[in-house]
Amino acid sequence: PKTFTVRIVTMDAEMEFNCEMKWKGKDLFDLVCRTLGLRETWFFGLQYTIKDTVAWLKMDKKVLDHDVSKEEPVTFHFLAKFYPENAEEELVQEITQHLFFLQVKKQILDEKIYCPPEASVLLASYAVQAKYGDYDPSVHKRGFLAQEELLPKRVINLYQMTPEMWEERITAWYAEHRGRARDEAEMEYLKIAQDLEMYGVNYFAIRNKKGTELLLGVDALGLHIYDPENRLTPKISFPWNEIRNISYSDKEFTIKPLDKKIDVFKFNSSKLRVNKLILQLCIGNHDLFMRRRKADSLEVQQMKAQARE
């Protein structure tokens, strides 16, 4: 069969595959998951960018029918699309935890997720534990972290501190994590990170019916409306179990609350394409929200049993 080359970029590797012309998104996605040995596939997706808008490969649509650049290798990023409500309970496999750790760490360092200075230092210390193992002053000599990107620039710029002083601060915490294996250190990292307000939120620039600029946030728990100046605390939240229906028509998006006394919330997003993405993220997040509130599937039960062994 005729094939074309795809390049898959994960948080820590790049791979190339020969993809058959007729393959659907699912065929490629499954191949990537198998190659990675990843079984908790439901959190992930293959992302591409089209005209500055993020898009995700649809499982039931042919890879080549997507609006991707046909120049080979066709490139996709294998990333977490949905986030667990509780990393420790839901992320079973080490590979899943590791990919989440890498993705969330990057978001924090890139300041996509706001993280206060103290928490940033603590997170850095767990990242160091994960990478270097137990602290040993005879091995980890002054300057051993000099080449590492460990803190968001905003945090570094807040204080009059030299790199040596930062290293000292981080190392003081790092020394406390003695005995933690890599996977444990990464899980401790995620447990702190998941409490940050912006963790797991997909933000979209929207305008309400009066034309006021706002942000819509989609996450594991529901939909949130923010003032663009404050991405931390929503002005309004619509938890999944208080929503009756969501829909879009062209650039308009409607959230219909369950309670008829609460006003329907309508807004406009910049493009029809964005509304499609919002709806996709809503369906996926709500699906996981419901599944969490049911008993574990047989597959997850088996994985948890294996992980315990």
């Binding site: 179990n241 929503i243 009756r244 229906n245 829909s247 879009y248 369950l258 709806l279 369906i283 049911k294």
Partner: peptide, 20 residues
């Protein structure tokens, strides 16, 4: 392909469909 210009998702209905 003509773009689908409308979409809807019944959040409540999805709950109801969920086997208990």
């Amino acid at each position: 392909l003509r773009q689908q210009r409308m979409g809807t998702y019944g959040v409540r209905a999805a709950w109801r469909r969920l086997p208990q």
